[in-house]
Each structure stands twice: as structure tokens, then as C-alpha cells.
Amino acid sequence: MAIRQKTLMRLAPWAVTLFLVIMWEGICVSFAVPEFLMPAPSAVFKAGIATAGPIFEHATQTFFTTLVGFALAVAVGLVIGAVVGSSPLVYKALYPMLVGFNSIPKVAFVPVLVVWFGIGTVPAILTAFLISFFPVVVNVATGLATLEPELEDVLRSLGASRLDILRKVGLPRAMPYFFASLKVAITLAFVGSVISETVASNLGIGYLMMSASSSMNMPLVFAGLIVIGAMGVVMYELFAALERRLTGWAHRGAGAAL
């Protein structure tokens, strides 16, 4: 019984995906939806195969742009989060600023970046960075700020310095929050880089989709969307697995079920 439950869990996402694709195909075919409005999955697949080379090239560009932006976001987010989370004063001082900044739609920022850095990869990296560093900051700060004073006392009673406390309890305690934020941040980073590519680049999946849509090549647009989604899912799963491996202690109840 338990084993059947497990296989069911493993197969469920594939089954749902397959079901949706079949529904989509069925609707497109039975209502004869024109391809330039809504291409059927088969048409998208065909377009994907036919343009596999360019898609791969642009996807690679988007992938690495996203990763660089994401890596920057993690590094900067970790540092700002650590500072914000370990000092109530900095927390109070910076928080409104951060929240305000995060409320600005990043697409509105792209033109500014283009003026500063020109069209191309740099604005895409920076947009990915800008959109994805906030969740890292918030989560690391929350993890540190919600540290139980009792655990801190264990270290303090030994005469530990503030740095010791941060290293021995603060950061380990914040790790589950940090890894949870990575899953969110990586998907947001894709959003950021693709937005920027759509507006201001001649490389990347975003650009490919933009040029395809201007020539009414809807199947290719959809192929691009699916590639972005797939990259997002793969990266999300990667970080989810990393999270389970490294912070299993925080998920012991749920971890058993997964």
C-alpha cells in the first residue's frame, strides 16, 4: 500500500501534465482554433523541432544570464540579509527602503539599465538580480531575527562573541529559510532575464519569442514559453533537492513523506 502511494505521488505530476496537453490538443483540434491565435501542442512541438538549433542557442544564453543574475542575488542577498537580520537598528532603517524598491515593477527599470549599460546581456543579468534578491534578503533576515533567545543563550553563556553566535547558531538556523528562498529566487530570476531580453536584447529566449510573435509565428512563441517553464521547473527541483539534503533537520516531519 505504502509503495503504491509512493508511485502514485511520483506519477501524479506527469499524469497531470499529460492530461493538460491532451485537453489542449483536443480543444484546438475540435474547435479548429487558428494557429496564429492558439497553436495546438503538436504544432508547438513541430516548431520546436524545426527550430531546435536557434532555440537551444537562445535558451543557453537565457540560462547563463539567469544563473549569473541569480548568483549575484544570492551573494548580495545573503550579506544584506545577514546584516539586516542581526541588527534591529539596520532592520528598522533599511526595511521600508527594501520593500519600496521591491514594489517597483522591474520591467520599468529596464530602460534605465539600457541607458546605463546598453542593449544586451548586462541589463538582463541585472534585471534577474534585481527581481530575485529580495526574497533572499527577507528570508535570511527572518531566519536570523526569529532565532530563539534560548539557543543564543547557550552560546552566550560560553562567552561566545557575536560573530561566533552568528556562525554557530544564527546562520545554521537561517539555512532552511535561505534554501526556501532559493527556490523562489531562481524562478523569479528567469522572469527577470526574460523580461529584459524581450525589451532590450537581440539574444535569449525572450528576444526569440519577441521576434517570433512579430512575424506571427505563434507555435515558436509557445515553444519558447515551454522551454522557459521547463528550465524553471528543473532549477526549482534542483534547489528543492539541495534544500532537503542540507536542511533535513528542519523538515523531518514532511521529509519522511517526500
Binding site: L151, D153, V154, V169, P172, R173, W249, A250
Partner: peptide, 12 residues
């Protein structure tokens, strides 16, 4: 050296 009322072991 102090043993607190709650064990306060670090869970990780």
C-alpha cells in the same frame, strides 16, 4: 558551564 532548564540542543 550551564545546563538550561530546557535542553536547548541545536537541532542541526
Amino acid at each position: 558551564g550551564m545546563a538550561f532548564q530546557a535542553a536547548n540542543l541545536l537541532p542541526w
